[in-house]
Design a protein around this nucleic acid. Structure first.
Lengths: 188, 188
DNA sequence: TCCTTCTATGCAACTCGTTGCATAGCCAAG
DNA sequence: CTTGGCTATGCAACGAGTTGCATAGAAGGA
C-alpha cells in the first residue's frame, strides 16, 4: 500500500484536499508514484476512518467547498513504522520493451514512430525536471542552505533526471537499431 | 493487457508450458515485465479459449505431465495489431523514492541499510545482465551475424544494463546524501 | 522412511488500479 | 444565455495483480 504512504508524505509536506493531491500526483510526487483522483479520494476516506488523517471542511469563495486533510499522530506513526520495514526492490514494467522484442515477429519499422513519440515525452519530462531543479534547488532563488526535507527532495529529483537521461539515450539506441533493421529488411 | 502480449512474444520466441513461462518471467522477459505463475496460468487459459493459443498435452518421463502452449494465427494477428497501437509512456512507480522523501519526517539514517540492500540487488542484476550479454551477444560463442530477433533482444538487454547502472549511481548519490544528513543530525 | 525440493497446475479471496459516468458551483468567452 | 473549462467530490463496474492455499508425481538425501 504505497499510495497510502505517498499520501502521508505529501500531506506532511503540506496539507491539502483530494483535488490538490491529484494535482501533486501529476507533478512532484507523481514523478515516482502515480494515482488518479478516484483512487486518491477512496484512500483518503479510508485513511480518515482509520484515524490516520483529520479532515477540515473549508468553504471557499468563488470555488466549491473543499475538504482539507492533514496527518495526525497515528498517521505519522504509521509512516515512521513503514520506513523501518524493508520493501522489495522495484520490478520494472516496461511495455515498450515488450513491443520491441515483439517487433521481431512483424516489421521493426512500424515501431519507429512510436519510439520517437516516447523519446519526445521523456525529453519533455527531462526539461521539466531540470527547470524545477533550477527553480527550487540550484538557481539563485533557491533557499540556502537547504533543510533536510529539501535535500531529500533534491536527491529524488536528481534520480528522475538521471532516469530520463538514461531513457533518452537508450531510446536513441533503440531507434538506431530499428532503422538498421528496417534498411536490411525493407517494409513489404 | 500487456501480460497477454508479453506471453505472445515469449511463446513466439519458443513454445512452452505455464511453468516454463513462469521461469522465463524470472529471467529474460521478466527483466521488463513480471508475472506470477497464477497470473500466467489464468491468462493462458483465457487466451486458449479465445483461440490465440493452441495447447498440446505432453506426457513426460520422471516429471508430471505438462501443457505446451504455442501461438496460432489469431494470436499472431493480435500481436501485430497491438504493435501498431500507441501505448502511453511508462509512469514510474518507485516506492523507495517515496521512502526517501518520507525520511524527512523521521531520521534519515534509518534508510541507509535499506538503500544499501537495494544497491546490492541492482548490482547483482547488473552482473547477471552483463553475463547474459557476453554469453549471447558479445562473446566468442555468440551467433554471427545476429538475426533481427537477436538484435532486438540485445537492444532491450542494453536497456536493462543502462537502467541498472543508472540506478546504482543514483543509489550512491542517495547514500551520500543520507550519510551527510545523518552526520548533521545524529540519531536521537 | 520421512522430509525436502523441484516440476507442474490450479482455486479462492482479496487488494490495487483503471475507466466511465455523474454531480455541482463558479467563471469567462462567444 | 449557452457552452466550455476549472475546481471539487464521488459511485459503480471492471480488470489487473497479489497472497495463501492445495494437489500431486518424482528425485534425492538424512
Amino acid at each position: 500500500m504505497a499510495l497510502e504512504h505517498a499520501i502521508l508524505v505529501s500531506l506532511l509536506e503540506k496539507p491539502g484536499s483530494g483535488y490538490e493531491l491529484a494535482r501533486r500526483f501529476e507533478r512532484s510526487i507523481g514523478y515516482f508514484w502515480t494515482a488518479t483522483h478516484q483512487q486518491i479520494y477512496r484512500v483518503l476516506k479510508r485513511m480518515e476512518s482509520e484515524g490516520l488523517l483529520a479532515v477540515r471542511e473549508m468553504s471557499q469563495q468563488s470555488r466549491p467547498d473543499k475538504k482539507e486533510y492533514s496527518v495526525v499522530g497515528p498517521g505519522r506513526t504509521a509512516l515512521s513504522q513503514w520506513l523501518h520495514e524493508p520493501i522489495q526492490p522495484e520490478s520494472i514494467r516496461h511495455e515498450l520493451a515488450v513491443k520491441i522484442r515483439g517487433a521481431a515477429f512483424d516489421n521493426p519499422s512500424v515501431l519507429i514512430r512510436e519510439v520517437e513519440r516516447h523519446r519526445q515525452v521523456h525529453s519533455d519530462r527531462l526539461a521539466h525536471y531540470q527547470a524545477g531543479e533550477l527553480r527550487d534547488f540550484t538557481g539563485p532563488a533557491a533557499a540556502t542552505p537547504l533543510d533536510a526535507g529539501q535535500e531529500l527532495q533534491h536527491v529524488v529529483l536528481r534520480g528522475g533526471i538521471a532516469y530520463e537521461r538514461m531513457t533518452i539515450a537508450w531510446l536513441d539506441d533503440v531507434l538506431a537499431t530499428l532503422r538498421r533493421l528496417s534498411t536490411a529488411h525493407p517494409p513489404a
